[in-house]
Structure formats: structure tokens, C-alpha cells
Design a protein around this nucleic acid. Structure first.
Length: 572
DNA sequence: GCCGTTTTCGGCCCGACTGTTTTCAGTCG
């Protein structure tokens, strides 16, 4: 897809025009940012859009007018935009690298004008040598602050994986809820939207005594540093290096504040536009007609005042949800807790930590009616993978176990290895005797996309394979995942009736949200599995459901919302 | 630079917090 490159160039232009003089510079800049977002969010490749419909088709993209359409055309044809090059000649800074918190375009321009700083290394050197404070508007204190921020950014101050910070966040949330004088409290932001990674954590509380709540918040044991505090907001850095904000509002602003603090930014911007069109004003304190608050107590009230149905946080990305909410045509997303079984579970026969029976009983305890026992197969020697004979022996033991188990059933299954050529490391005559079969790639990650895709397609075409597990192989923040033409895989899954997995382990979340969306849109069935290697791992399922919701999946899109008997009929 | 339930011109999301050039610009979410 060329979309990311085009969007990147447009966003860079947005950044570089933000510092231009003239009364309209900021609006021009904003127009480029908007167009960049729109191009990035396209379902289709922007170059394909152009090839098919020319400039007119580009003009159909919201936020793209004549001038930007011409620049997109230029990028599609030549790979660059002259206007972009001109701006870069004037201010040749590495904008991607110099996105340091607290330093915006204006400051960067001033720094460049005085010190000719163009990248992060030069910025750090200038700060450490004390030259930065010679730039107008930068004090010695700010210079020290910038050094700290660069250090933070360098030691992976990036985004945190949701599952890793979840327990601490939920604990803080629950403490805030229980605080005397607090009517309600909630985590908001990207955590509430169930994004796979979290930049910072936003907490919200409703109270008539904000000072007391902020005192509590800033003195929690998890707080490493208090970064700021006003009359309604406090900013802290938690131990482990994650930033957290707290906003305290009165009860009659709870809904509007929750909406505002949940985001996404783009969703909020669109809502405020709608408010203006209706002669209203929307902010964190409520919906206002003149000075009069007309909504704000609940999120439902806020959306209703704008003529919209309430939207689940997971889909608040301004990606079409607002238009559907205006028509009352939102899909009913799959609910948390609606899974009846888990189709990827490991035992200590390979790399799990508990017996099959222990995993089954833990599943029952968790509220599941069945699990598929999917131990690894022989070519994954590292995990002590099973061969065909061992798999069948295990299957027999599972079926015997089922006679003793009450209220939970174990399906004999396997996580079969997909070999380099797309074949499997277990014969079909063995796999055909199992209840259900998942297949996955665990080797040869660096094949070219075409070969990798062909490999997955071949596996999906195998009649014995019911599910492709963790289809892209990524590990969030650690490994990209192998290159795969996901559209092609989705198409094959559709044609062959193969299900695609959302592996709910928070390190994987694979399929990720946008790929899940593509699968749902194409009518491909999903399954959501914990990939449990321990009885406590069933708790991961909520993160998988979160991704599925972000992909607009309904209950009928996800096979393991069915009871076992119906599931086994529904697979291929 | 974009765009139209007020509009083809004149608007463009909104408020909190920080630091400081002490009245507001810059930045953030």
C-alpha cells in the first residue's frame, strides 16, 4: 500500500506549514493533517483509487480538495511532492525523529533557526552543551527538561502493551472508585478503547472535591514523579515509566468528560464539528447552548444531544461509526464474556504448564464450556512437539477424560506446524480423526511476502485445517511478523471456509484490529483464543474480544460464541 | 487548504496547563 507513504508526506507538509507565517498557516497545516488521516484510513490503495478514477476519485476523499489531490497525483506518479521538497529545503529537520513531548513545530523552528539542529542526536548534544538555552523562549529549566525527555524516549518510552499495564491500571481505577466523595471513576483513553498498546493512561473521577482526589492520586505508591497539577487535572509518571493523567469533574459533567477523555481525538473532533453545525458547543464540561448546559451527566445524554446513538469506545476512531450512529445503524458488537469455548489451549504434554484436566477445570471455572487442546506438533522440537501417533494417543486420553468431566468438554486438536512449502508436519489421515485442527507458522519467518502468503493459502486450502492460528506471527513491540498479503489470505479463508484466529495473548493480538475488520467485512469467520499455557491465561480472552470489537465483529462473526456441538457443525 | 443545515467567503474543535517575552503563545490530548 502506498497510503502510508502518501499520508506520511502529507503529514510532514502539515508539520512544516504549521510554522509558516500568515493568518491561514495553521488552517492550511490542519488541512494537510486531515487529508493525511483520510488517506491513511482508506480501505483501498490510494494509487489504485487514482488509476481507476483519476483526480475526480481523489477529490471524493474527505478533506482532499484540488490542491492536495494534485499533490497526491504527483506522489503516485513520481514518488515525491515538489512542494514537500521545497518546505524541507527551508526547514530540513527530521520531523519523525524530533517528535519529543513538549517540543512542537514552533520550538523546533526556533531551535533550527539559531542552532541548525536537524535530528535527535544534534538536539541532545545542543542541550547537554548548554547551547539550547540560548534559543529565545528556552530557559535553562526547559533545556534540562528536554534532556530528560530525550532520555525517556531513548529507553523505550514508547507505547506500553495493554496486557502488561492492565492489572496496575485496573487496581488504580478500583481504588479511585472506592474513594470517599467520589461518585464514579473510570479509566478512559486508549485503555478504554482497548488499543493493543497504550501511550499514557487517562483516569477520570466525578467528585465535588477535586483537591482531595488529586491529593490521593498524586501520592499513590505507584507514582514516581508528579509532573503537573492544576485545579482539575493532575499529571504523574508511574513507576515503570508510564504517564498517567487524572481529570476530576463534577457529576453533571461525568458523561461529557468520559466521552472527551476516552477519545479518540479524531472521534472527538468530529463530534465537536457536529455540535457546531447544530448551534451547540461540546467540551469536557458538557454540551452547551449558549451558556446553558443541555447534556453532560451521561455519555448517552451527550451523544443523544448531538443526534447520535451511543457508540462503544472500541470503535470511536472516526472511521465510519459516527455516520452509522446518526442513522441508528451501528452493528451490535460481540460482548465481553460471550465466548463459550477457547480453541487454542496448551498442556504440559508440550510447552504448557498444567495437565489437560487442570486446564479443563480452570476453563470451567472461568465460565467456558469447552476447550480445544492444541499442543504443538513434531517439527516444533523446541516445545517437544507431538508426532501423529502421540497425537492420537492424546486424543484417546482426551475422549476418556470427557467421560469423567462435568460441565466442560475437551476437544482433541493440535496446533499443527505449517512447513516452508505450505504442507503440514502431520498427515491428514491423523488430523481427520481429531475434533478440530488449527495450523500455524513457527519457522522461516523471513520469506518474501509472496512465498509466505502462498504458504498460508496452501495451508488454508488443506481440507483438514479448520483454523489458521495467529496469522501474521507478530509480537507487539518485539517482532514485525512475517510479511503476508492479508487480503489474499482473507479471500482464501472465505473461499475455503477456514476460520482466522485472533490470538488474544496481549503480546500477539493477531489478527490485529484492522485485519479483523477486513475479515469481518469479507464474511470470514473468526475465532478468539487465549493461547493459554497456564490456567490463569484464560483472562487474556478479554483482550482478544477487545480487538474483535475494534474490528466491528458481532457475535455471529465469531465461531466460538457457539456451544461445542454447533461449533463442530460450523467448521469446515 | 477545505468546505457548505449560517456559507462559494469566511470560517475552521476546545479547554487545561506551563512557563514566562507577566498577558498569552505553545503544546497537549
Amino acid at each position: 500500500m502506498k497510503n502510508e507513504q502518501v499520508a506520511g508526506a502529507l503529514r510532514d507538509i502539515g508539520f512544516l506549514t504549521e510554522v509558516e507565517d500568515g493568518p491561514n498557516a495553521q488552517f492550511k497545516s490542519r488541512a494537510y493533517y486531515r487529508a493525511a488521516d483520510a488517506v491513511e484510513g482508506l480501505d483501498e490503495d490510494v494509487s489504485a483509487v487514482y488509476e481507476k478514477g483519476g483526480i475526480d476519485a481523489l477529490l471524493e476523499i474527505p478533506g482532499v480538495g484540488k490542491a492536495i489531490a494534485a499533490k497526491i497525483e504527483e506522489h503516485v506518479k513520481t514518488g515525491k511532492i515538489r512542494y514537500h521538497e521545497e518546505l524541507r529545503a527551508k526547514l530540513p529537520i527530521d520531523t519523525a525523529q524530533l517528535r519529543i513531548e513538549g517540543i512542537g513545530p514552533k520550538t523546533l523552528k526556533a531551535i533550527y533557526a539559531k542552532l541548525k539542529v536537524t535530528n535527535l542526536a544534534e538536539l541532545e548534544a545542543a542541550a547537554r552543551e548548554g547551547r539550547l538555552k540560548t534559543v529565545p523562549g528556552i530557559s535553562a529549566k526547559k533545556e534540562q527538561d528536554i534532556i530528560k525527555r530525550i532520555e525517556f524516549a531513548k529507553k523505550g518510552g514508547g507505547r506500553h502493551i495493554i496486557g502488561e499495564v492492565w492489572p496496575m491500571i485496573k487496581q488504580i481505577e478500583s481504588r479511585l472508585k472506592g474513594l470517599p466523595g467520589v461518585a464514579d471513576a473510570s479509566v478512559a483513553g486508549s485503555v478504554r478503547r482497548m488499543k493493543e498498546t497504550i501511550g499514557d493512561v487517562d483516569f477520570l473521577a466525578a467528585s465535588s472535591d477535586p483537591e482531595k482526589v488529586m491529593d490521593f492520586f498524586t501520592s499513590m505508591p505507584e507514582v514516581a514523579e508528579v509532573k503537573g497539577r492544576g485545579s482539575a487535572k493532575a499529571f504523574v509518571r508511574l513507576r515503570g515509566g508510564i504517564d498517567a493523567d487524572l481529570l476530576v469533574v463534577p457529576e453533571n459533567s461525568w458523561g461529557s468528560a468520559l466521552q472527551y477523555f476516552t477519545g479518540s481525538k479524531e472521534h472527538g473532533v468530529e463530534l465537536r464539528r457536529i455540535a457546531i453545525a447544530k448551534g451547540l458547543r461540546l467540551n469536557e464540561w458538557g454540551v452547551f447552548e449558549g451558556e446553558r448546559q443541555v447534556a453532560g451527566r451521561t455519555e448517552q445524554d451527550v451523544y443523544r444531544a448531538l443526534g447520535l446513538a451511543w457508540m462503544p469506545p472500541e470503535i470511536r476512531e472516526n472511521a465510519g461509526e459516527i455516520e452509522l450512529a446518526a442513522k441508528g445503524a451501528l452493528p451490535e458488537l460481540i460482548k465481553y464474556g460471550s465466548l463459550k469455548g477457547d480453541l487454542q489451549v496448551h498442556s504440559n504434554n508440550t510447552d504448557g504448564t498444567a495437565t489437560i484436566e487442570e486446564m479443563a477445570l480452570a476453563a470451567k471455572e472461568f465460565g467456558l464450556g469447552y476447550i480445544a487442546l492444541t499442543d504443538h506438533t513434531k517439527s516444533l522440537a523446541m516445545a517437544g512437539g507431538l508426532d501423529g501417533e502421540e497425537l492420537l494417543e492424546q486424543a484417546n486420553r482426551i475422549w476418556e477424560l470427557n467421560d469423567r468431566l462435568e460441565g466442560v468438554q475437551v476437544l482433541a486438536s493440535a496446533e499443527v506446524n505449517i512447513m516452508k512449502d505450505g504442507s503440514l508436519d502431520i498427515e491428514n489421515n491423523v488430523l481427520d480423526r481429531l475434533d478440530i485442527v488449527g495450523a500455524a507458522i513457527h519457522s522461516n519467518f523471513n520469506l518474501p511476502a509472496e512465498e509466505q502468503t502462498a504458504r498460508l493459502v496452501h495451508a488454508a486450502e488443506n481440507p483438514a485445517v479448520d483454523i489458521i492460528f495467529h496469522p501474521t506471527g507478530r509480537l507487539i513491540n518485539r517482532r514485525e511478523g512475517y510479511p503476508v498479503d492479508i487480503a489474499k489470505l482473507v479471500e482464501t479463508a472465505k473461499d475455503t471456509g477456514t476460520a482466522l484466529e485472533i490470538d488474544a495473548h496481549y503480546n500477539r493480538l493477531d489478527l490485529k484490529d484492522e485485519y479483523a475488520w477486513l475479515a469481518v467485512k469479507s464474511g470470514v469467520k473468526l475465532v478468539i483464543d487465549s493461547d493459554a499455557h497456564h490456567p490463569l491465561h484464560y483472562a487474556f480472552l478479554q483482550f482478544g474480544i477487545g480487538q474483535a470489537r475494534r474490528g466491528w465483529a458481532t457475535e455471529s462473526d465469531v465461531l466460538n460464541t457457539l456451544p461445542a456441538d454447533r461449533l463442530l457443525k460450523a467448521i469446515k
